[in-house]
Amino acid sequence: MNKILALLAAALALGGLPALAADPLADITVAANAVPGFAGFSAERGARFFRTPGGSWSCSTCHSDDPRRAGRHAVTGKPIEPMAPAVNPRRLTDPARVEKWFRRNCKDVLSRECTAQEKGDVITYLRSMGR
């Protein structure tokens, strides 16, 4: 019975406290550090990257030029919640989720995966924004 109670408590804790998950920037920082010449992430560079088109799209095409505001999917028109954690605290909290969307969206925008530098710059930029 105690085992069941402990398991239940663990399940409730895992379901109710996603904020305890690892920081998505941690693994990205490890990867960036492995690249010779890495000199840290830059919010300013992230801001530029966010608005720079690869082909016909940039990040801002769907996520709005102002990440504190809701965006809109370029093809379907479905609203996309704001990317800036200051106004949407659930953003950038789940490493697997962050990796999944970088993988997909970088291919859509740049036809390749983003580098650790690019990902770290964008996260740093989004986290630097106030409300």
Binding site: V75, K100, R103, N105, D108
Partner: peptide, 9 residues
């Protein structure tokens, strides 16, 4: 997936 990458684990 209709010109977008929607790949999943």
């Amino acid at each position: 997936h209709f010109d977008a990458d929607a790949s999943l684990e």
